[in-house]
Structures are given as structure tokens and as C-alpha cells.
């Protein structure tokens, strides 16, 4: 009882202190009255058709910063994320090789029908989030995270048998993930390779033509802004994230005995 009282009063004190600090101007003017210089530079340049040697050809400044102006940072972030997934897959590597015989029939017919409709909606939202990432808020990672909820629902509601019958196998998902990662890497150096072959100057993570290098991804598709490499980065990130998450879910939803067998002998150090 005393513990609860101390816990609750600590919470109240922290809230009051933070409120006092914020209210008395600890964070400056809220909301801020001006835009910082660096922010206004990005906002002015990202879709400025008068200064095409500094633009990203994308009306969405966040995606332009994430995949063009600060593209290398995002690449390393992506590497960390795939390292984590790779570690999970390596830890349970033999789970994927054991063919599982599951007799689960899933949940009732009503739940199945509703889930089927919802799954379609989820996939549509995910695709539009990822493929319009250079036009509206969103992007590859967001779209991939939304899309991975769909196979998760299917696994729970229809049972794992549903996936096995439709031949959505571990190795296929792994192939999609690896291929999209390789293509993501290729997109970042494609113009550099093209520059080597044609004798033009180009650099890593080049999107639009600059003053020193004239090579460029197409800024428009028909009459819609394409954002050059941003579209391809979003597309491949979307595929890689969705298949990576799905892989981890299929492993996590395996039978208890299979998972436990994999971790046997851990306490002895091997």
C-alpha cells in the first residue's frame, strides 16, 4: 500500500514539474513562431523547379530528407534493422527446415470472412502508403509495417495451414527479402555504375542531376512527380520490411515444442 502511494505521488510530482517547466517557457515559444534555417532550406529546395540542381523532385520533404539528402543515414538504419531480423532467423534457423504438420482449422467462418475483407483493405492502405511515399506522408518502412499486419492476421485467424497450402514458404519470403535488399543497395549505386560505364561523373546516393554530375533518375513519370530514386527506395524497403516481419512472425507462431527444441542445450553454452 505504501509502495503504491509513493509510486503515485512520484508520478504526480514529475507531471507537475514538467508542466511547470513547459508552461514557464522551458521549451521556448509553443508553438514556435518561426521556422529554423535548416528546415526552411529543405522546405524551399525539395520541390523547387527553379533550382533543379539542388532539388529532390519530391513534394514530400520528409521522404526527400530520409532517402536523398540524408540517404546514407537511412541506409545504416536499414542495416541495423535487417541485422536484428537476421539474428532472429539465425537463432531459429532449423525451425524453417522442419515441415510442420498443423491441423489447425482456424477460427469460425464469420471471423474468417471479416478478416478476408479487412486484409484486403490493409494491403491497399499499405501499398498506397509505400508507393505514394514521395507525394504524401508515409514511405517504405511505414507501408511495410502496415502490410505485415495482414499476414499476421491471416496466420492467427486462418491458421498456419493456410500459408502451407498456398505455398507461401519460408524460402520464398527469404528470397523476396534478400532480393529487395540487394536492389535497394543497387539503387544507391546505380548512377555511379552508369557514370563509370559512360564516362560521366556521378556519386553514391545521387538522385537528381547536380552541377558537377549530369546523370539523373527521371523526376517525372508521365506527368506525376516520381521523386527519382525515392520511389525505388520506398518500393524495395516496403517489400523487404513486409517480408522480413512476416518471416519473424511465422517463426514466432511455430509450435512450442519446435521452438524449445531449437534452444535446447543453451544453458551449457552451445
Amino acid at each position: 500500500m505504501l509502495r503504491d502511494l509513493v509510486f503515485a505521488s512520484l508520478l504526480v510530482i514529475i507531471i507537475l514539474a514538467l508542466t511547470y517547466l513547459t508552461y514557464s517557457g522551458g521549451l521556448g515559444d509553443l508553438p514556435p513562431r518561426d521556422v529554423r534555417v535548416i528546415a526552411s532550406n529543405y522546405l524551399n529546395l525539395t520541390y523547387n523547379q527553379g533550382i533543379t540542381w539542388l532539388w529532390a523532385a519530391s513534394p514530400e520533404a520528409v521522404t526527400a530528407i530520409v532517402w536523398d539528402y540524408r540517404g546514407l543515414d537511412t541506409l545504416f538504419e536499414t542495416v541495423v534493422f535487417y541485422g536484428a531480423i537476421l539474428a532472429a532467423l539465425t537463432l531459429f534457423r532449423s525451425v524453417s527446415k522442419v515441415p510442420e504438420f498443423v491441423s489447425s482449422a482456424g477460427l469460425s467462418l464469420v471471423v474468417k470472412r471479416v478478416t478476408a475483407i479487412v486484409t484486403l483493405a490493409i494491403l491497399a492502405v499499405a501499398a498506397s502508403t509505400a508507393l505514394h511515399g514521395h507525394l504524401t506522408p508515409g514511405g517504405g518502412f511505414q507501408g511495410g509495417a502496415i502490410a505485415s499486419v495482414a499476414p499476421l492476421l491471416l496466420l492467427v485467424v486462418f491458421g498456419k495451414q493456410f500459408f502451407i497450402e498456398r505455398r507461401i514458404s519460408y524460402s520464398k519470403l527469404l528470397t523476396i527479402r534478400n532480393a529487395s535488399l540487394a536492389l535497394l543497395g543497387f539503387t544507391s549505386v546505380a548512377l555511379l555504375i552508369l557514370g563509370f560505364l559512360t564516362g560521366f561523373q556521378a556519386y553514391i546516393f545521387q538522385n537528381q542531376a547536380k552541377t558537377v554530375s549530369t546523370l539523373s533518375y527521371p523526376p517525372y513519370l508521365l506527368d506525376v512527380p516520381l521523386g527519382g530514386s525515392l520511389f525505388f527506395f520506398n518500393l524495395f524497403e516496403f517489400l523487404a520490411v513486409a517480408s522480413g516481419f512476416t518471416l519473424v512472425f511465422t517463426i514466432l507462431l511455430s509450435r512450442d515444442e519446435t521452438l524449445r527444441k531449437e534452444l535446447e542445450g543453451e544453458e551449457l553454452g552451445y
Binding site: 514511405g139 509495417a145 502496415i146 505485415s148 499476421l152 516481419f245
Partner: peptide, 22 residues
């Protein structure tokens, strides 16, 4: 910050509860 909202909702309402429920 709509970019954050899109990924935050999917992770915090879909993926995170599932892993914790498992």
C-alpha cells in the same frame, strides 16, 4: 508528424501486442 503516426499505429496496435501476447 503523420509519418511517425503511420508506423507507430501499425507497430503499437498490431505488432507489439502480438509479440507480448505470445
Amino acid at each position: 508528424a503523420p509519418d511517425i503516426v503511420l508506423v507507430y499505429v501499425a507497430v503499437s496496435v498490431g505488432i507489439y501486442p502480438l509479440i507480448v501476447i505470445l
